[in-house]
Nucleic acid binder design. Structure first.
Lengths: 226, 226
DNA sequence: GTATTATGAATGAACG
DNA sequence: CGTTCATTCATAATAC
């Protein structure tokens, strides 16, 4: 079956294209969809494999002794050595001209680009390089979000000056949790980020685990200490 | 053994060639050889997975006889001890297993998750990690909405082919991602996915892919790819 | 090369 | 339900 799958890939860029991205001509033998699926499949196996290996180690360890050092067991980086950097997902990069236009439109107030507007903008920008409506949409989303965050950040900084115990609610966001952290000069979370599930995201969470003494299923770690 | 798997693969990445270097045009394609390697590597994962599942089953069986369960193995004493450090991640993130199950259910047609259904699904998924009914509900909402929007987008793209006026490539503008088939979501095994919830891995495997030879969803022989 | 930053994209949750 | 927001992830760009 495995063989059956890949064998029939259409060769030639017409299925989805290829095309020119940033001046580079790409001819594809697989569609983006196919690539994505492949990537996912491999990723799934990578994950499963790691999980199983971890589990096996844990069980083995338990068998060996009282399982005292379980604490660091599951984090062994060596086991996670399975390389799962499968691809290089290509990503749109606006050209200078496009950026300029986008910025101009953004500054023009209308914070809501609306679908029709997006279409127009996309049409215009496509004169200056490859771009899609999704790209434009994302750009505005990100632009607005980051602009907002920056403001908020500044406000906070001003209000806070030195005191760490500051009352933290300069803006009173939405509802839900007060948990509000923002830090981004730490994007080096590559490998050592571990899993973590929030434990109280919702109170509706009923454990129907038949097992007695059900424990927090997790094995947690600091998901985001950065 | 495991490491031998996927390490050096590069699908569609620059490692494969492609691009313009010093004015020389390179066409990037994947050779049959490379495809074969990929195939092989996927098969390797399939085999490893199967073996590990078997191993786990055997060991688990032993454990059961002894009346010992794995359930609480993964409560990291360190983490719980330093409880303050762990700031709850405010947003639920499905584990790989959960995602697989969700996708499967989603694909099964029933577009109406109904209250009762949600409850059931949540119950099942909670075996694989923290989750609430709200999470499930939201997931289905989002899944459908985005699936729909994508379709609409594609349709639009297909329908219109005259706006593009010139240079560059007047074709597929959406270089972004697919999501039309079934098993593609987590684009990469995020570190969080590496976490596994104790006892249910092997059963979770069922929903992912019980058979090594059946990687299946990959390449549905093209078809509707634009 | 490696590390850091900037930013496009993905997605859970909330709003109307 | 469709749209929008907020947060996070991955990677292009850049600094070191």
């Amino acid at each position: 079956i495995i063989n059956g799958g890949i064998g029939g890939v259409s060769v030639g860029g017409d299925a989805n294209g290829g095309g020119i991205i940033n001046g580079v001509l790409y001819v594809k033998v697989m569609t983006d969809e196919q690539l994505e699926i492949l990537r996912t499949q491999i990723a799934v196996y990578a994950v499963i494999t790691e999980q199983l290996v971890e589990m096996h180690k844990a069980i083995t360890a338990q068998q060996d002794l009282a399982g005292v050092r379980l604490g660091n067991l599951y984090c062994d980086p060596l086991v996670t050595a399975v390389g799962h950097k499968i691809t290089a997902r290509q990503r749109w990069t606006p050209t200078a001209v496009q950026l300029q236009i986008l910025e101009r439109i953004f500054d023009q107030g209308t914070g809501t680009p609306s679908k029709q507007k997006i279409k127009e903008i996309t049409a215009e920008l496509s004169q200056h390089g490859q771009i899609s409506e999704t790209n434009v949409y994302n750009w505005f989303q990100n632009r607005r979000a980051r602009s907002k965050r920056k403001q908020l950040n500044n406000a906070q900084n001003n209000a806070e000056s030195e005191v760490e115990t500051d009352a933290e609610s300069p803006k009173d966001k939405k509802i839900t949790r007060p948990e509000n952290f923002q830090a981004q000069h730490n994007s080096a979370p590559r490998a050592e980020d571990l899993c973590f599930q929030s434990q109280e995201i919702s109170s509706g969470m009923q454990s129907i685990d038949p097992q007695p003494g059900k424990i927090e299923p997790i094995f947690a770690s600091d998901g985001n200490v950065k």
